[in-house]
């Protein structure tokens, strides 16, 4: 930032991608450490950003730190490019970094996401940046940072399994549907951010670099390309993802994550892909669902 006095009030201009270069270097160091210790939550000096905490400040800082002038940025929220928060964050980088933006998963080099992993398989020249509200997978079992830090250090993850045990005892199956905990590279248990567990398998052995930023909690963690990511489970109750009974009503896709859309007040509803780019691309290719034009 620099300020110069023009007519009383300071004129304010910002650095490329908002953050100053020193801050970006600090964040990059945290990212490198996170990549070196997969799944480990690296504390970093998160800055205050011009958007509220909990609205993607961590993801925005990570994106700002990795973004170059030639990058092509895609921002999604709930899988969609046109949700208000995705629009706001994309607009932020268009304004402060003047980078090219896209809604196409294949064209993007950096994808910032909240709550989803794109359906289209990612490549090794892509970076997926997750917005993380609560980075600590043990937080709701043990609220104290001082204690959870110990548990991670000593790889004491019995408590996490107590939670899964309770699910099975009460419901007959594991009832965690999103933010489903994973073990990364056989060591750290990690919160994958509130993606549906449907997306968990996409994290395993992904060719793309996956970075996680939590601004309010000041933590960055990472899954390097081609890393083993295992969803926690029991031998006799293995991890399973949800399946949808019907294909996408617009593009006819099966095996994609679907949003429920309520059509009227008489119980009419349809299921459509939550990944809008994926759905549009399929429709352009001529695929049609039962309600597609």
């Amino acid at each position: 930032m620099s300020a110069s006095d023009v007519g009383g009030m300071p004129q304010i201009t910002y650095n490329f991608a908002y953050l100053d270069e020193q801050t970006k270097r600090m964040i990059r160091r945290a990212i490198l450490k996170a990549i070196a210790v997969p799944g480990y939550q690296v504390p970093f000096a998160a800055r205050e950003m011009p958007m509220p905490y909990g609205w993607g400040t961590g993801g925005v800082q990570v994106t700002a730190a990795v973004l170059g002038r030639d990058d092509v940025l895609k921002v999604i929220d709930q899988g969609a490019d046109d949700t208000t928060n995705a629009v706001a964050i994309r607009g932020f980088f268009e304004k402060t970094a003047r980078v090219a933006t896209t809604t196409s998963t294949t064209e993007a080099t950096v994808i910032q996401t909240r709550h989803r992993i794109p359906e289209t398989k990612l490549r090794e020249d892509q970076i997926l940046v997750y917005q993380v509200p609560i980075p600590e997978p043990l937080r709701f079992l043990e609220p104290r940072e001082t204690e959870t830090r110990q548990l991670h250090a000593l790889a004491e993850y019995g408590l996490m399994h107590v939670k899964l045990y309770e699910d099975i005892a009460r419901h007959g199956h594991i009832a965690t549907t999103y933010a489903y905990p994973v073990e990364v590279a056989g060591r750290y248990v990690m919160d994958p951010s509130p993606i549906p567990k449907f997306d968990n398998p996409k994290m395993d052995d992904s060719p793309a670099l996956q970075l996680f930023g939590a601004g309010r909690e000041k933590r960055i963690y990472a899954i390097p390309p081609h890393t083993k990511v295992r969803s926690l489970d029991f031998e006799d109750h293995p991890f399973k993802v949800q399946r949808f009974a019907k294909p996408c009503a617009l593009c006819g896709a099966t095996g994609a994550y679907l949003d429920e859309v309520i059509l009227d007040d008489k119980g009419g509803r349809m299921f459509v892909c939550s990944d809008t780019d994926f759905c549009n691309t399929r429709q352009e290719e001529g695929h049609r669902g039962e309600m597609g034009a």
């Binding site: 909990g54 709550h115 993606i195």
Partner: peptide, 21 residues
């Protein structure tokens, strides 16, 4: 305030998973 108010953001995807369950 940021974290309390972020509850206003869409949570369609997670809610869909819960609805299904």
């Amino acid at each position: 305030t940021g974290f309390v108010e972020h509850l206003k953001l869409p949570h369609y995807v997670d809610f869909q998973a819960e609805l299904d369950l």
